[in-house]
């Protein structure tokens, strides 16, 4: 449903993304993981049209929406929850009455419809952002570190919500993240990026448990987990 082929992006001569290709099946869920400077966010922005690629092709069947990392700045501070959703629904020629359904879908109390962003917690704001993105009934949702800024207990709520929303709407996810445990939980396939290039790609199960590439191995090894001993030798290089 989304096919990205040989994407390349230069910023003033610096190559941010270099020969990146991946695809997302309808209703599928692909993670793009990498550390800062890996080019993963640039890929997301190219897919959503926020940034123009220097070369390469993006073929997309259907519409795309995006959820951003910072829940505090991804809503217009002057707009109530209802106002925000109504604006988007009107734009996509959808019925206003769907506001209630959308709030239910993302697990927000309907009474919060009149609330302004500053009255909402980070997790609630992120729910509004997801509702806004789903209002247009997109085929693909790009989530750019959408749970990274949230507290652990809230993160779990939002991850459950994302799993439920995909089951309910059939929307596909392109999940941009640095958090491998999130990848394991919500994605089927993963693309590992480093310095603008794809170093490894495949099913999550295979890539994260039997990584082929040295960098993937390092990435997997550096995630704190029970019994983990941090080592400075492993990550050298």
């Amino acid at each position: 449903m989304l096919e990205v082929r040989d994407l390349r992006k230069e910023f003033k001569g610096v190559v941010a993304v270099d020969g990146v290709s991946f695809r997302v099946a309808a209703g599928g869920s692909l993670a793009v993981v990498g550390e800062s400077g890996s080019g993963k966010t640039t890929c997301a922005r190219i897919v959503t049209g926020l940034t123009k690629a220097t070369s390469g092709t993006v073929v997309l069947n259907g519409s795309v929406q995006m959820v951003f990392q910072d829940p505090y700045q991804s809503l217009d501070r002057r707009q109530t929850v209802r106002g925000c959703l109504a604006e988007v629904l009107a734009h996509h020629r959808k019925d206003r009455s769907r506001i209630g359904e959308l709030l239910d879908l993302v697990g927000l109390d309907r009474a919060l419809g009149e609330a302004l962003p500053r009255h909402l917690s980070g997790g609630q704001r992120q729910r509004v952002a997801i509702a806004r993105a789903l209002a247009a009934e997109p085929r693909l949702l790009v989530l750019d570190e959408a749970v990274a800024a949230l507290d652990v207990s809230i993160q779990a709520q939002i991850l459950n919500l994302l799993v439920d929303a995909r089951a309910a709407t059939g929307v596909a996810y392109l999940f941009i993240t640095h958090d491998l445990s999130v990848v394991r939980h919500v994605c089927e396939d993963v693309v590992v990026m480093s310095r603008g290039r794809v170093v490894e790609a495949g099913p999550v199960e295979r890539v994260l448990h039997r990584p082929d590439h040295e960098y993937t191995r390092r990435l997997v090894a550096s995630v704190p987990r029970p019994g983990w001993v941090p080592s400075r030798a492993v990550s050298r290089g």
């Binding site: 917690s121 609630q124 652990v152 779990a156 709520q157 459950n160 799993v163 445990s181 919500v186």
Partner: peptide, 20 residues
């Protein structure tokens, strides 16, 4: 319990209702 990885992929995470 709320960290992903504590339950098999696709299953619901055990969450705490409300906000911190």
């Amino acid at each position: 319990g709320s960290r992903p990885g504590t339950v098999p992929p696709g299953q619901r995470l055990r969450t705490v209702p409300g906000v911190p």
